[in-house]
Amino acid sequence: MSDQKKGTAEDTRVDQLGVTAKPPNLDDPRVVLSLLEADQVVAEKRQTRFGRRNLSLSLRMLLWGLRVYVVLMLVIVLIDVLRTLHLNP
């Protein structure tokens, strides 16, 4: 619920526009921009990227460990599938 309380004053202004106006004229870009957050606009998202994060040694080891885990487990599933097919040809 705390998320709803954040920025109430500013958001109320937007809401009042929404409720008092007729269905918005979405051909007007100002109306569209007033309804969306800045980084919700497709053109803006295309131009901006989150940068790479630093991967510490321990983080890289964790990711590699999980990768090895998945590969090993898939091999085990394959063994299981082959065994089942062998038992029930």
Binding site: R13, V14, Q16, L33, S34, A38, D39, T48, R49
Partner: peptide, 22 residues
């Protein structure tokens, strides 16, 4: 997010408020 340096366009809409003048 960071701006893509390869981008040529420079548009960045403001935080949406009714007072935002475009």
């Amino acid at each position: 997010p960071e701006k893509d340096p390869s981008s040529t366009a420079s548009f960045r809409p403001a935080r949406p408020t009714t007072e935002t003048a475009v």
